[in-house]
Write a protein that binds this DNA or RNA. Structure first.
Lengths: 142, 142
DNA sequence: AAAAAATGTTATAATCGTCATATACTATAT
DNA sequence: ATATAGTATATGACGATTATAACATTTTTT
């Protein structure tokens, strides 16, 4: 099992490869806002654990395992963003919150949140009701 | 701002004091499943940061700050448990998931989840719809 | 009140992920 | 082909948390 930090790297590497075809150390460092030296170290670990194959100075590719996991991690991330957005969390909190919680939810919870998102998307009245509750709570504060 | 680990301690100490009137090092250690020496160290830090007053070998009490924060942390924990339960997450995953995510959600997200829980409690059809979606997903797997 | 048991503390070390610095390698431009 | 700029690595350190083991204090038992 990858640690939370390893998951961050795998997820980001997957996204980079999807979008631009490769993932260099410096791309990863920039995307995750860490130092290149940290990337090198982590990438070596991910190679050892067979999430990717890494040739130093040359590049890296995800293994079958790595790709499979990366894909799920990206799905999970997007689902959670969608969820928080639907229930009315402010944009500026969403990214950080998802970043924090994504590594700590069982797939069971993710699946149930998936259903919930599906429900909320199909049920505009629900969203309306939530907005109403939010407004009421705000007024009470005055 | 307390770190996640500090929050765990404050929350647990608050619960212990609520339920049995005091919180000894060994109680805290048992509740959090860490060694007593770790508790001592953390409690010293929490004393330094004024979440509690600690006299070695004798005991500790929460400061006004500590109590206030403890209360919010317990509320947050219970809300998240309630949320996961309502959407149908299995009992055996709930505790650990909440333990993992509670420290990583903004109060904005917590408030919106609070509204959502209120909505779900008032709207049994929503729960029914979720159960239905869950069942369908299960059947698709067959 | 002394001995034994229980509880709490300290010192030291390990782990994880990070950064900083110095060094090594690669690619580009001339 | 060489110099240079850009990129990657190795090494060592640190901050946060935990554990181990030795030690100190308090409580209980006799």
């Amino acid at each position: 099992m990858p640690t939370p930090s390893m998951e961050d790297y795998i997820e980001q590497i997957y996204i980079l490869i999807e979008s631009k075809g490769y993932a260099r150390v410096s791309d990863i460092a920039e995307a995750l806002d860490v130092h290149p030296s940290s990337v090198t170290k982590m990438v070596q670990k991910l190679d050892k654990d067979e999430y990717l194959n890494y040739e130093k100075y040359r590049g890296l590719i995800l293994t079958t395992q790595g790709k499979k996991i990366g894909k799920r991690l990206v799905y999970r991330h997007e689902l959670l963003e969608q969820f928080l957005e639907l229930i009315g969390v402010e944009k500026e909190n969403i990214y950080q919150d998802v970043e924090g919680i994504e590594h700590h939810l069982s797939w069971n919870s993710i699946d149930r949140i998936g259903d919930l998102v599906q429900y909320l998307e199909k049920t505009p009245q629900a969203i309306e009701a939530l907005k109403q509750l939010h407004k009421e709570a705000d007024e009470t504060l005055k």
